[in-house]
Write a protein that binds this DNA or RNA. Structure first.
Lengths: 253, 253
DNA sequence: CGCCGAACTTGATCTAGGTCATAGCTGGAA
DNA sequence: TTCCAGCTATGACCTAGATCAAGTTCGGCG
């Protein structure tokens, strides 16, 4: 796959992988990404294995279901959706990933990715070759610990989604998704209440087990009730407390 | 890798939980439990940290949601259900665990179990203290690798359940569960077609996002159609192929 | 700027599965 | 052995959300 190291069009980071300015040590996502709790000497080691400068265009795939597993990825900017296709070709969205979050761990067990990962908008990605990460984890116990924790967290968020899908109404599911995105924005020091949904209504439906029509209707209803203000993908959470009440199960997937 | 020492293929192990002879080295579940692909010298090390002889009665809890996380557990015999309570006190079953399977990995991320685990019948459990497992993983790379794989597998099976819950009908969900249990029995060299369901219809419903009534109705229907023969918890899969067709998504959770 | 397909909205109808109600089992305790 | 609580089964009904069917708006491109 040609992701161009040279023509880094983005004004933001013309990231040469060796550019000293971007590193795990100075990445402002550090605290929510891998390096948490690492010694600075360890961060240097991590830095050495991370491949940066991999800007992806909207719609481009990071990997596809069935591809041989080689690396996990950290989202640096943008948004990624993970999905798998069912037997009859329907799409099941298994997660949305925002900056600071790690994707691809599902590929470890079978040495093949179990999901496809696709950019919802222009995104910058850090690639972390898994065999190097394994070596590092053996050498640095806190690294191993942190990676165990990341995987465990993926398990618990998947289980929260399971609960949401099997017990909650359409309104509850959508409120929970909005609250989840809001909380993750807050972690990244962004607005808790005003943001742009990077995914389509169809994606939301495929994630929450609803049809587009239902998603659209519920969002319209929330809008009318003054819980939110929507204008296409721009969304403004007007009554966070009430939304939390509706979502109730304090979701954080 | 060699698991078979002496008393292998004994149809049913007359395992006394306190029997000193039980070790990871001679456990006939070895190949599907942790020790896969370990050197025999490594198995000895694993053996040293595993606490055996923890027979549990039906209904007894292995741990509860919120308990501080100390260990993961391998099911040696019996069956365990994992579940969490929703805000309003409903039960969401997140998994059923059979001999050779590992439970408790959800606790790593927050250092607290995210689920409760309860014996569905008399069960024997191996306790694996996590801090020891971490040390061992640092020392033995293949151990680390295997544990990464186990966690990754938990992620992919959870994602399969997500797909099942969001896309499939009641009949498809129940067929998928039956096929899943059948396949896991086969791994343990037990009958693919005749077995006893250790969980109640209510548990099945809580796992599959259905009410008891629906579970009961679908099972009755399958019975009438000659796909299965049920007598309370004893079940006989008469038409495995047709059931697989109904389940379609080749589930293996 | 204007075009076109894709994404979104909204309404009308249909249905799988939930809810409620009843009754028959079943298995463990005494 | 009897008893009782909790399972299981089955019928009658009802609703949340799917499906079908128009529009309408958006956003990317020539």
């Amino acid at each position: 796959m040609v992701i161009a190291t040279s023509q880094e069009n983005s004004e933001i980071q013309r990231v040469c992988p060796h550019n000293q300015e971007i590193s795990c040590g100075n990445c402002r996502l550090g605290s929510i990404c891998l390096p948490i709790a690492l010694e600075s000497s360890d961060i240097v080691k991590l830095d050495e294995i991370v491949q940066r400068g991999r800007p992806m265009q909207k719609g481009e795939h990071l990997y596809r279901e069935g591809d041989v597993f080689t690396a996990v990825y950290a989202v640096r900017s943008g948004a990624i959706k993970a999905y798998r296709l069912t037997g009859d070709g329907q799409e099941q969205v298994t997660g949305f990933y925002f900056p600071g979050e790690i994707i691809g761990m599902d590929g470890i067990s079978k040495n093949k990715y179990a999901n496809s990962a696709k950019a919802l908008e222009t995104s910058a990605i850090c690639e972390i070759p898994f065999h190097r990460l394994e070596e590092l984890s053996t050498a640095i116990p806190s690294m191993q610990r942190h990676f165990f924790q990341l995987m465990s967290q993926e398990i618990t968020t998947d289980q929260q989604l399971i609960t949401l899908l099997s017990k909650n109404s359409a309104e509850e599911r959508i409120a929970a998704l909005l609250i989840s995105i809001s909380a993750r924005n807050a972690r990244r020091k962004l607005s808790r209440t005003n943001f742009r949904l990077p995914m389509s209504r169809t994606d939301i439906g495929n994630f929450l087990g609803l049809t587009v029509e239902t998603v659209s209707r519920v969002i319209s209803r929330f809008n009318k009730q003054g819980l939110i203000a929507v204008e296409s993908k721009e969304i403004n959470l007007l009554d966070l407390d009430r939304l939390k009440e509706i979502a109730d199960a304090k979701v954080e997937f």
